[in-house]
Simulated scan of single mutants.
Amino acid sequence: MDSRDWEVLKLIDEEKSLTKTAQRLYISQPALTYRLNKLEKEFNVALLNRYSSGVTFTPQGEYLLKYAKEMLEQLELVKKSVQNLDDVLYGKVRIGVSTVYAKFRLAHILKEFTEHFPEVEVELHTGSSTLELPEMLRTGVVDLIIKRGNMEWNEGRHIIFEEPKGIITSKPVCFETLLSEPWIQDQSSVITESDKLFFEWWTEKFGVMPKPKIMGVNSIEACMEMISQGLGWTFLPKIHVRNRKNLSFYPLVWQSGVPIIQPTVLLYRKQLLEKPAIKKFIDYILMDCSEL
């Protein structure tokens, strides 16, 4: 019994007539009868009750008909799966992201990506944008990184969003007294080029190099908590005051009127675009940033 036999039984059930079934199969009725006789001989049972008005299935025939319909449905599913095999994405994507991006943006992207491509394995690393993420990318620990701030990189690069950078404090900003309070810094990383923008801005605005008192903490979360308690201020992007109603953000603007901006960039090696899973994930990141 094969798929052709399954189709014969299904059509007989629909037509209740051997003549009409033969017509739909584009064969002669004797050829159809011969095939049915072979099938009955194979199972050693009668499959049909033959009447002048047509045919019906015997109990044994009904059982084989049920099996034939199930197998035809299964065969159709197999055909579709094989035809769509190229659309099923496999592989592994190793991602390095800043803790801030992981906290505020990445979760919903990963959720959507893994729902659409469940066969792709995602390996996630978080770390400092200044030290750890660039090293992961250069040494091949990850396929791509999403970091805050620019860096020298001659391969694939996209700015996925930009945000204003300024003073974050729990008090009204007064520049006459600001430097008398501690600048609370996340010293899980070194002073960045982005941090140095504050010194340049202050010098441009007031004509002297600032000498802030610096208090170091070991994480952004600790930094924000210290500021929430009124222990000082910091110079960070606006995203850090999200969901913190007791903190205020004061954007810093150059004398030219251009605000100080911090970019978040996506960096990768261009040759990795040949890997479908990595290319598709990059497409998801870029699609997300286009909606911001």
Rank of each mutant, 00 (worst) to 15 (best):
Ser188Pro: 10
Glu221Val: 05
Leu48Trp: 02
Gly166Ser: 07
Tyr101Cys: 00
Gln262Met: 12
Gln229Gly: 05
Thr130His: 09
Arg24Pro: 12
Asn84Ile: 00
Gly96Phe: 09
Leu131Asn: 10
Phe113Cys: 02
Pro164Cys: 03
Ser98Tyr: 05
Thr21Tyr: 03
Lys41Pro: 00
Leu144Phe: 08
Phe199Lys: 04
Gly230Ile: 00
Gly230Lys: 00
His158Thr: 03
Leu179Pro: 01
Lys38Leu: 11
Tyr284Phe: 06
Glu70Ser: 13
Val8Glu: 00
Ile167Gln: 09
Asn154Lys: 07
Ser3Ala: 05
His116Ala: 08
Ser256Arg: 06
Leu11Asp: 00
Pro118His: 08
Ile220Ser: 07
Leu247Gln: 01
Cys223Phe: 02
Ile159Asp: 12
Ser170Tyr: 05
Gly91Leu: 04
Glu163Phe: 05
Val208Ser: 12
Ala102Asn: 13
Asp143Asn: 14
Pro263Lys: 01
Lys10Glu: 14
Gly127Asp: 02
Arg148Ile: 13
Ala68Trp: 03
Gly166Gln: 06
Val100Asn: 04
Leu72Asp: 01
Lys165Gln: 14
Lys213Phe: 06
Pro172Ile: 14
Thr114Phe: 02
Leu64Lys: 10
Ser98Thr: 10
Glu42Ala: 12
Leu133Phe: 00
His116Lys: 07
Ala46Leu: 08
Asn84Lys: 06
Ser180Met: 14
Pro259Arg: 10
Gly127Asn: 03
Arg4Glu: 14
His158Leu: 05
Arg157Ile: 06
Lys171Asn: 07
Glu193Lys: 10
Val8Ile: 15
Glu181Trp: 11
Ala68Gly: 07
Ala22Asp: 10
Asp195Leu: 00
Leu286Gly: 06
Asp13Gln: 12
Glu123Leu: 15
Lys171Arg: 10
Ile285Val: 12
Gln255Asn: 15
Glu70His: 07
Pro212Trp: 13
Ile184Gly: 08
Leu47Tyr: 04
Leu65Phe: 09
Glu162Val: 11
Tyr250Cys: 04
Leu64Thr: 07
Glu112Gly: 06
Gln187Thr: 11
Leu179Gly: 08
Leu89Asp: 12
Ser17Met: 10
Glu225Ala: 10
Met215Trp: 13
His125Ala: 09
Gly91Glu: 07
Glu193Gly: 15
Glu155Val: 01
Ser98Ala: 12
Pro172Ala: 15
Arg24Glu: 05
Lys92Met: 11
Phe104Cys: 00
Glu76Gly: 01
Leu36Trp: 05
Lys111His: 12
Ser28Ile: 02
Val93Ala: 06
Arg105Lys: 10
Phe198Val: 06
Gly54Thr: 11
Trp183Tyr: 15
Leu267Trp: 03
Tyr63Phe: 13
Gly149Cys: 05
Glu15Arg: 15
Glu42Ser: 10
Gly96Trp: 06
Cys174Phe: 09
Leu32Phe: 12
Val88Arg: 12
Glu62Met: 15
Asp87Glu: 15
Lys245Ile: 05
Met215Glu: 15
Asn150Ala: 07
Lys147Ala: 13
Gln29Glu: 14
Val45Asn: 06
Gly61His: 06
Ser52Gly: 15
His116Tyr: 00
Val142Tyr: 03
Leu273Gln: 11
Val173Ser: 07
Gly54Pro: 03
Glu73Lys: 15
Ser189Trp: 07
Arg50Phe: 09
Glu181Asp: 13
Val173Gly: 01
Tyr90His: 15
Gln23Ile: 08
Gln29Lys: 10
Gly232Val: 03
Arg242His: 09
